[in-house]
Design a binder for these strands. Structure first.
Lengths: 161, 161
DNA sequence: TCCAGATCTTGACTCAGTCCAGAATCTGAC
DNA sequence: GTCAGATTCTGGACTGAGTCAAGATCTGGA
């Protein structure tokens, strides 16, 4: 699944990956895995659409169930930036972060400088046992920046008439 | 609202605060502000309950509308850890972070070492204009740690019989 | 080939929000 | 103090994104 993970005998064989993790191999689960690999940060609804396009009928419940099992086994990762439905990606194990566009909602990966969790130290852990520092960068992508700058410029021009 | 903000003539008068921000003063909005001040990281539903206990009838829509206006004006802050409904707090302006318990869902504030946004620099900004690095620490609170350690120990003892 | 247990299908349901028409309230001008 | 207009509130309907559950179907070990 992950390009970094070469410990499995058949790292590129999804069925073998499932068996190695004690998960039954079904057509639905394989279709879900292919959908997540094809489109990083895909939503559950997106997985449904892609799986249906590929294998015909598949229930939403099977997609949700498959995603759940794959996440539980660490084969895929579930993220959920604020204001977004859950999203799934097959890049696992490197604790990378995400950068989300406030305009169009696009999500891109950002390497973690540390790599291991938790990659940041809280000023005061208040007795908590911290196991993860989730970082999400927010901003605007190049396309949305260009759009905003252009419309802002036009708007400013209009006002200055 | 915020203990750090002393620029307003009546920093402790919610009605004055609203007027200073060009927001109409209504009984519903004042009740919402008091609820958020009384219980940091309160959910919208929690605000509804507290406001109803205090001023009697108030619609859910009015609570949602009031929260929205207060967030827009920067008078309160909206956060939403994964798996949680939106939560609101009146501590604004210092870019503090949050620490969430995976067990009970409790949320506590963590000071930001930097203070200003964005407080972290992405390894590669990919042409994005980044304006915030949202950090959420995840772990288990002292109570949940004690509970898990105890049950784990008991469970281990049972197995070793 | 059989069959127990796992998984899928289908539709109902829940939660946490949003939408909207009409009623009520707030505010500032007079 | 009054009142018109703008804003906000009420109450209920609706939505998106998930979860629940009974019965049907499929997987994989024997």
């Amino acid at each position: 699944m992950s390009a970094h993970d070469t410990s499995h005998q058949h790292p590129h064989d999804p069925a073998a990956l499932l068996r190695d993790h004690g998960v039954q191999v079904t057509a639905q689960r394989l279709a879900v895995m292919r959908a997540v690999s094809a489109q990083p940060h895909v939503s559950a609804d997106g997985v449904v659409e892609m799986a249906r396009a590929e294998i015909g009928a598949i229930s939403r419940q099977a997609v949700y169930d498959s995603l759940g099992v794959l996440v539980d086994k660490g084969l895929i990762r579930r993220i959920q930036p604020v204001g977004s439905p859950a999203r799934f990606e097959d890049r696992v194990g490197d604790n990378h972060h995400h950068l989300v566009c406030r305009g169009c909602g696009s999500v891109v990966d950002i390497d973690c400088a540390v790599g291991a969790m938790p990659c940041l130290t809280a000023a005061d852990d208040l007795g908590y046992e911290i196991d993860e520092a989730e970082v999400v960068y927010w901003g605007r992508c190049p396309e949305c920046r260009a759009l905003t700058t252009t419309t802002t410029t036009e708007s400013t021009l209009e006002r200055s008439h």
